[in-house]
Design a binder for these strands. Sequence first.
DNA 1: CATGGGATTGACT
DNA 2: GTCAATCCCATGC
Length: 199
Amino acid sequence: MSSEAARHLRALELPVVDAARELVGCTISHGPCSGVIAETEAYHDSEPACHAFVGLTARTATLFEAPGIAYVYRSYGIHFLLNVVVEAEGVGAAVLIRALAPLEGIGLMQERRGRERLTDLCSGPGKLTQALGIGLDLNASSLLSGPIRLGPPPPEASEPCAVVVATRIGITRAVELPWRFCVAGSRHVSKPWPPGLLR
DNA sequence: CATGGGATTGACT
DNA sequence: GTCAATCCCATGC
């Protein structure tokens, strides 16, 4: 593998906020379905919005594992949310994947979601796991060896995409941290859109 | 051991 | 704009 193609892997070693920015534009795949990451958020055990803030528990154990592991958990009793564990083993840090631009397996994603429009398939953290067929059974699985794969940006993306930075959404604590990263101009980003996303 | 709340979504007023 | 669905786990009694 060339050093260019390994950039998304080196991101896993970075501080989580840098990793979250670097992972925007990379790809996530599961089976025949894949998409380009359009939105991420960073979470770190040093701040109270992160599940790992409470320390090592049965729930948070995955967050403290080695970089490149998937942390999948159930949200609001209904949805599954996918995170990429980053930083050194023993540190509770992860990048929440909040949105994808659908790439492959779109028919299956439409079927799983019960929606037709591309912007309704993966424009939210619970939507994209439903579209890709990701459940709790994949918690603690490796994103480097599958079944879920983290890959480099698609070849047609020659330039690194412009990224809009904003505060995280859907949380009640540490709301002031600007740890949300969105592809500028992308309508696949989850709502509410950050200021200046389009334009 | 009982309970409250959450990194959400979709339907409805 | 509001609100319910639904379940695991962390917390507190």
